[in-house]
């Protein structure tokens, strides 16, 4: 085994996802403690353009598996590709973002390699020797610190919990890796992929989120949130109740069954703050609540609050921020 540390570099819509830069930053601190290098793993088909982007995000070496059978993501083919590349490059700890893909293949890869995995990490408490990681449990009401017992393991990190790595001054060496993939043996077929929201900031990666719940009263309420989101350069989130009431598309849902977000600023408008909602946003750095009910649970985890009607407060806040940020 080498001293090196590996990073799965996730791309979407032909661009490296911001969470990948954060994962590289985390891998860097572990690599420094081990005295090894950071090796990026880029998986997919037709990767010429992406490879040169990925070579500059702060890795020391970039291993690329470029294969026609990897054009569409599937857990089966990506697991094989990642494990193949990792082993050919000498093996070592492997870091993911705790994204849909990270959750889908991280545990599968860990088990194929006979390794432990720490999911949804928000802090590193010790990087050398037996690394220790902190992660939320019980819907974010508590945290546990876990220690990995062996030198090789898998970790997934929560987006926006760590700073991005510094970009490299010069691009890293790119190493093509061949992995045997035979689509005829695949047990899963991708029938259809329905894209949503292409071009918008992904909720999980937004710095600022303006979110609405039942208290914004309807789809018009979400129209009212848009100007506020615009002045802040924010993405729009929603509670499950608002989604179920058809105020907004399910892809905006924040919470245990929706997206897990950890922005710098989360503004909850007309959201009660049920535990399942909190599970998706309680690690946000600054939480603002706007709610008519001073006893709403959201105020227990908020840093700032206004007790009032969202229909009045949101436009007023939009105005004030326009002035301040002009």
């Amino acid at each position: 085994m080498s001293q090196d540390v590996f990073v799965f570099i996730e791309a979407q819509h032909d661009a490296i996802r911001p969470v990948a830069n954060q994962v590289v930053g985390v891998a860097r601190s572990i690599a420094e403690a081990r005295g090894g290098k950071v090796v990026g793993l880029l998986i997919g088909a037709g990767l010429e353009g992406l490879s040169s982007d990925a070579a500059s995000i702060g890795v020391d070496r970039l291993a690329v598996v470029d294969h026609a059978a990897l054009a569409t993501y599937s857990a089966e083919s990506y697991t094989t590709a990642v494990v193949g590349a990792l082993e050919q490059q000498g093996g070592g700890p492997l870091f993911f973002g705790n994204t849909s893909i990270g959750k889908d293949i991280g545990p599968r890869i860990a088990h194929r390699l006979g390794q432990g995995m720490v999911s949804d990490v928000v802090a590193i408490e010790q990087a050398d020797d037996k690394p220790r990681f902190r992660r939320p449990i019980y819907a974010g009401k508590a945290f546990c610190t876990v220690e990995v017992q062996e030198a090789e393991y898998v970790v997934s990190i929560r987006a926006n919990s760590f700073p991005a790595a510094e970009a490299a001054a010069s691009p890293a060496e790119v190493v093509p890796v061949e992995v045997n993939l035979d689509p005829a043996t695949f047990k899963v077929q991708v029938k259809e992929v329905i894209e949503r929201d292409a071009g918008q900031v992904d909720l999980t990666e937004a710095d600022v989120i303006v979110s609405g719940g039942m208290g914004v009263k309807g789809p018009e309420g979400f129209e009212m949130l848009k100007p506020l989101a615009e002045v802040l350069g924010a993405a729009v989130g929603a509670s499950r109740a608002a989604v179920l009431a058809d105020f907004i598309h399910p892809s905006h849902q924040v919470g245990q069954t929706g997206k897990t977000v950890s922005p710098n600023l989360y503004i909850a408008c007309g959201i009660s703050g049920a535990v399942q909602h909190q599970a998706g946003m309680s690690t946000s750095k600054c939480i603002v609540a706007i709610n008519t009910d001073a006893d709403a649970p959201i105020f227990e985890i908020a840093d700032y609050g206004i007790v009032g009607d969202a229909a009045e407060v949101v436009p007023a806040l939009t105005e004030q921020l326009k002035k301040l940020l002009a």
């Binding site: 974010g140 945290f143 546990c144 990995v148 017992q149 105020f299 840093d303 700032y304 609050g305």
Partner: peptide
């Protein structure tokens, strides 16, 4: 393969301002 070494509670916020 991994062991829990400590539990901590979410730090109580001061209460919203």
């Amino acid at each position: 393969k991994v062991k829990v070494v400590a539990h901590t509670l979410r730090p109580a916020k001061q209460g919203a301002k």
